[in-house]
Amino acid sequence: MTVIPGDGIGPEVVHEALLTLEALDLGLGLDVLDHVNADAYLRTGTALSDRDFERVRASAATLLGAVGDPRTDGTDYARGVLLRLRFDLDLYVNHRPARLLHDRLSPLRRKEHRPLDCVIVRENTEGLYAGIGGRLRPGTPHEVALDVEISTGHGVERVIDYAFSIARRGVCMVDKSNAVRNGGGLWQRRWREAAEARPDIETTHLYVDNAVMQLVADPTRFDVIVANNSYGDILSDLAAELAGGLGAATSANLNAATGFGLFEPVHGTAPDIAGQGVANPVGAILTAGLMVGHLGHRDAAKAVTRAVDRAIDLERTTPDLGGDLTTAEAGAAVRAELR
């Protein structure tokens, strides 16, 4: 497997994740691309070289810490790494599990609605983030900006099929087809076809504004939510906050046909706290657990989850989760519970 520690707090939290993988003693071979970072981009102008891309492609999976740096101008660098991997490897599923880590971490007032345990399945290669559009007369009072949302029958069908494949109880499809009629109509047709083919799975549909409200009002009603790129982006961050915060949130970018996965905690590079030893390593550790489960080491993945749960229960965590430990100490606390 390949590892890209990245920027900001990425190398700090990935270090703890790799120590956790080492403690699991799974015999994983690691190819660490620690030269793929903003420093190299600023020096060479290349975000991810073709050679490094091929090293990633040849691996079984990739663990990514975080990419991005305020010294880089615009989004070309981060897009050059993350979106190149997503699009060129056709990682069409963004799989975002959200499970309440501890009752004290939930922002919800009603205790019975706190135990969130769902997955947001976000279409990952189409939609508004495909980069289709442009500007006319930029910088003038008559500037026109266009961002085109792309939906294809193939793309919509396969991400909905993936959502059904992982469902335990039901799948809720979220769109805005009452207002966005063309793409919405395509999603609705593919949704009906998939639902008819899987009568054993409970199916529901919500418009995105209502889905946001329902996710806050009672997140326990959801098992799997499937949505397009932009709606899924918003819903998955909301679910992460309901589950205890972005510092512990995990994600997988998957191609279900090839089996390849790019796994990353979703907290970003957090340059304001980089190098201070206070970053929360739980998201990276749980992401590593998600990755090894994907690679077939399911018992090891469950062991990581149990160890994190125990460390959080004991408040052996960084301050954002209620403890007073450093990044390294919090990582060590999780590994102590593995034993």
Rank of each mutant, 00 (worst) to 15 (best):
I132H: 14
E112I: 08
E149M: 15
K111L: 13
S151F: 06
A40C: 10
F263A: 12
D233G: 09
G29A: 15
P70V: 01
R192C: 01
L48D: 12
R135I: 13
V278S: 14
L21K: 07
D117P: 03
A23W: 03
V278G: 11
V174W: 10
E149L: 14
D320H: 06
G185F: 10
L108G: 06
E12V: 09
H35G: 13
H267I: 04
G131F: 03
D34H: 09
G331L: 10
L91A: 02
F260D: 11
G183S: 14
P319H: 07
V119Y: 02
D50P: 01
Y92C: 10
R86A: 00
L286W: 03
G322M: 03
R181W: 05
H154A: 15
D320R: 04
I166M: 01
L325M: 10
L146P: 03
Y231R: 04
G232P: 08
L262K: 02
V308R: 02
R110I: 12
W191Y: 12
L325C: 08
L186Y: 04
V180W: 08
G29C: 14
D209Y: 07
G45I: 09
V144W: 00
A279Y: 05
D299M: 08
I225L: 13
A274W: 04
A248K: 12
G289N: 05
A288T: 08
K176N: 10
E202H: 05
T250R: 06
R306H: 14
V32R: 12
P97G: 14
R110M: 01
L63N: 02
I225T: 04
D25A: 14
G277K: 02
P11E: 04
N228Y: 11
E149P: 00
T203I: 05
F222R: 09
L325F: 06
A217N: 12
E264D: 13
L186T: 05
V144Q: 04
L206W: 03
G127I: 06
L48T: 10
G296P: 02
V3E: 09
D69C: 05
G283D: 05
I166H: 00
E337S: 07
L19N: 15
V180N: 11
G155S: 05
A145I: 14
G323Q: 03
V13I: 15
G247F: 08
Q276Y: 00
L136M: 06
T326Q: 14
L295S: 04
V3T: 02
L26V: 09
K176I: 05
D218P: 05
A60W: 04
L26S: 02
H102W: 07
L338C: 10
L136R: 03
V156R: 05
A40S: 15
D25L: 01
V212A: 15
W187S: 03
A211N: 01
H15N: 01
L30A: 01
A163C: 09
K176Y: 03
H154L: 13
P115R: 09
A145D: 07
R198P: 03
D73I: 02
D25T: 13
A243W: 06
G8K: 01
